[in-house]
């Protein structure tokens, strides 16, 4: 089994061949999607539930489309969370899902570790679609696929990840994946938004965009949540844009053929200038969305196959997998 896990909860702990397998399979889905010849019966009879405790139109839609293209029955569940309900809803929902015999469970939750917790309680294969500030593995996979298609390889590339690293699950998943595949990662952002001891995850850290972008092949911008201003982490949006927003002047420090990426949704004029975001020569933001569907098809396909194998081998449902 090239991807020897029952779930996809995190990139951390995945070996390069497992990542390679998902990327290669996703690559084949890109061509199939473009030619409109996707096999529509691979997941026939399987139930995919999109369980979203946080709003997310694009990730949910992407998983929905991926599931439908493979012939799965797709159900979307949005669970409004209140501070009163907290995690109760999570485990109550797990019991409900078990009763429905769901096969594939895509979960997004505002708390780090929520996907791990669910994976211990449900019979389905769990795909983490973002848990708190922990990980967002399919985002890192789609970023890697986008880069690989443009640059041919990930190995040896210089990647700058910029902005609110502290609150970013996208950054954490990307750090693990890019590191595992041989790219060099540099983090750039204000000191208040760079988490403690993150250099120990094998990255370089700098607080200045000129330094951070120097020689970069890839410039990956992170979304800045507006509420960070209220938390006293940065004084204002305009100050943030002045020092860490990506505009043409700052992009000039990167390599001339550097690609600009963003996981969306963008705050134009805060972390990124529209002139850069919409530049077809540099920005691959739209392509990231396309790769997202292909990557999610590859993940669903792989986990559905694994579930069959795991069940045949009577492996415990609690087998963690990374």
């Amino acid at each position: 089994m090239s991807y020897p896990h029952r779930h996809l909860l995190a990139i951390e702990g995945l070996y390069p061949p497992a990542i390679q397998h998902l990327l290669d399979l996703a690559e084949s889905y890109v061509s199939l999607n473009r030619s409109g010849t996707t096999q529509r019966d691979l997941l026939r009879g399987r139930t995919l539930i999109n369980l979203f405790f946080e709003d997310s139109t694009r990730t949910r839609t992407s998983f929905e489309l991926a599931g439908k293209r493979l012939g799965a029955d797709v159900i979307n569940m949005s669970v409004a969370t209140s501070s009163v309900n907290k995690g109760e809803t999570l485990l109550d929902t797990a019991a409900t899902l078990n009763a429905m015999h769901c096969d594939l469970l895509v979960v997004r939750h505002g708390q780090s570790g929520a996907a791990n917790l669910l994976a211990q309680k449900v019979g389905a294969s769990v795909i983490n679609a973002g848990d708190g500030t922990h990980e967002h593995p399919t985002q890192a996979l789609l970023d890697a696929l986008t880069i690989r298609r443009r640059k041919g390889t990930l190995e040896g590339l210089q990647v700058a990840i910029c902005g609110d690293v502290l609150h970013s699950r996208v950054a954490r998943s990307n750090i693990h994946l890019l590191g595992a595949m041989g790219a060099r990662v540099r983090l750039v952002g204000p000191r208040t938004l760079i988490p403690a001891e993150i250099a120990r995850m094998g990255v370089e850290v700098t607080y200045d965009m000129r330094e951070g972008l120097a020689g970069a092949d890839i410039v990956m911008m992170l979304r800045l949540q507006r509420e960070r201003m209220a938390g006293g982490l940065i004084p204002s949006a305009r100050e943030y844009f002045r020092f860490w927003g990506l505009d043409r002047d700052k992009l000039a420090f990167a390599k001339p053929d550097a690609l600009v990426m963003h996981p969306g949704p963008m705050n134009r004029g805060v972390e990124i200038d529209s002139a850069v975001a919409d530049d077809p020569e540099r920005s691959v933001i739209a392509e990231q969305v396309e790769m997202g569907v292909a990557v999610r098809m590859a993940v669903l396909d792989t986990l559905a196959n694994n579930a069959t194998a795991f069940n045949q081998n009577a492996v415990s449902l609690n087998e963690g997998g990374a």
Partner: peptide
């Protein structure tokens, strides 16, 4: 505790 482990797990840290 704020530090490498909390950063990896995405848990809010206490210095």
């Amino acid at each position: 505790t704020e530090g490498e482990l909390a950063t990896r797990l995405g848990l809010p840290g206490i210095p």
